[in-house]
């Protein structure tokens, strides 16, 4: 079932790249925000969400820190990786300690995908649930419901796995003139 597929995915897929569409729905379902971009990851702890539309933003986990760059505001926020990775979607996809960080259970198929539910063991209230959807063996979607009931669905297209990603893919250097803000 999808839990086996997820475990195989974490075990066999060392790197990956895909285009994504992210739809964030407010808790009351009234508001939806759609953004698109490209996602790359490399186990055990590096990932890159490059948002292109509706505005340019970059989230890079370089193994030590997580960088957030907002091109419009020309601003970089950076915080330690440990706090950030823990039980987040990035950990689910890029991490290596799946069973350590999450309780896994299979769910009924829906929208043509087989779903696995990952409940974070670390109860910091940040996330209610994370679900991973597979089309056969191919990672197709991740759905995150946070502690407030806000739902974020990432749908992946053209997922390429075990691609050669150079060292540079997860190195982030703040652009000249950008403000760099350290977050706790």
């Amino acid at each position: 079932d999808a839990v086996d597929t997820l475990r195989e995915f974490v075990r066999d897929v060392k790197t990956g790249r895909a285009d994504f569409t992210q739809t964030v729905t407010s808790p009351d379902g009234a508001k939806k925000k759609v953004s698109t971009g490209q996602f790359e990851f490399a186990r055990p702890d590096r990932f890159r969400f490059a948002y292109a539309k509706p505005f340019e933003q970059l989230v890079v986990g370089d193994g030590q820190q997580v960088w957030l760059y907002d091109a419009d505001l020309n601003q970089v926020s950076v915080r330690g990786m440990s706090g950030a990775l823990g039980a987040t979607p990035a950990a689910l996809l890029a991490g290596k300690s799946l069973d350590q960080d999450f309780e896994l259970s299979a769910q009924p198929s829906a929208q043509g995908l087989d779903w696995a539910l990952a409940t974070p063991k670390q109860k910091d209230g940040a996330f209610q649930s994370l679900r991973v959807g597979f089309r056969g063996k191919v990672l197709a979607a991740v759905e995150i419901v946070d502690g407030f009931g806000q739902r974020s669905v990432l749908e992946f297209r053209d997922m390429q796995t075990n691609v050669a990603l150079g060292e540079q893919a997860f190195r982030f250097v703040p652009p000249k003139g950008a403000e760099v803000l350290k977050q706790p």
Binding site: Q22, V24, S26, K33, F49, Y51, Q57, V59, L68, T88, P89, A90, A126, F127, I144, D146, G147, F148, Q150, R151, S152
Partner: peptide
């Protein structure tokens, strides 16, 4: 007022 991160987490 709702504040959220880029990945849609509140």
């Amino acid at each position: 007022l709702n504040l959220s991160g880029p990945l849609g987490n509140t």
